[in-house]
Amino acid sequence: MPDLNALKVSEASLASHDVDAVFVFILVIAGFFFILTQGLLIYFAIRYRRKKGEEVSTPYITGNHALEIIWIIIPSLLLVGIFAYGLQVFLKMRTPLPGATEVQVTASQFQWSFKYPDGRTSVNELRLALGKPVKLIMTSRDVIHGFFIPDYRQKQDVLPGSYTFLWLLPKRAGTFDIYCSQYCGTGHSLMRGTLIVMPQAEYLSWEQNEQKKLQAGTQAPADQGKRVFENAGCLGCHSIDGSAKVGPTLKGLFGSTVVLADGKTVQADEEYLRESVVDPNAKIVKGFQPIMPSFKATLKDEELAALIAYLKTLK
């Protein structure tokens, strides 16, 4: 069955409720005109159909001024009403509540990076606390992207060279989809993220935990690398169980011989792995497209080293 839940009024965020109210308002007006026009169209078509062999003389009616004026004035008034209601809610959607937490969003082909006020970063996963207003300040590193959370009824294009913003007030805990809504290239449809809304207490303890992990430099490199691997969103395109996704699997990659698109082969050593992360298009694996973004600016040197340590463990 199709998921019809998404058609119900969404209570996921402050804006979603208002937007759906406008939607229902327009639906009622559109529904009225739909029934009126289609009803008359079908009724006249049946009522005045020509029966076989019958010659009916039809009246010579060329118009009616009163009717023309009615069907100019009434729709015009209703249209102004629709405009005004949409405007009112739109202004609300565009005016952030004071005191909103600011999160920096950077879009690039084909991922979302988030930077929280305390300096933590994450890729393709945005965590927010329930009931706290958030302002997303967004920019793109390459082409135009679109930040879209369907359950929140919110969307904003993300531009290179300038900031656009979006603000949210989560009203329900849960997991929500983030899509890229503006076509941005080969991996456009895979540029998806997740919004996780947690109750305030849970969010705080998660936040502390993250900060602790950040400070714990004593972690084994492979364990640290596993965390980098998960946070950077590698799993979106690469499997670790041997199955092919958009990108080649990483299972048993280290030490293997890789066949490249130009027919050459290369030994998958540490340097190959490093290069493939910071400059992915330098060597393209045969049968795959050059669509992986560079992680040069996203990952710090020690994170990269840890990531490679982790990749070695994927036997």
Binding site: D18, V19, V22, F23, I26, I29, A30, L79, I82, F83, Y85, G86, L87, Q88, V89, F90, M93, G146, F148, P150, R153, Q154, K155, S181, Q182
Partner: peptide, 14 residues
């Protein structure tokens, strides 16, 4: 109409 109205266009656009 849904696309012309600002509030609803934000959701259904693209």
């Amino acid at each position: 109409l849904f696309l012309g109205s600002l509030a609803t266009d934000v959701h259904v656009h693209d």
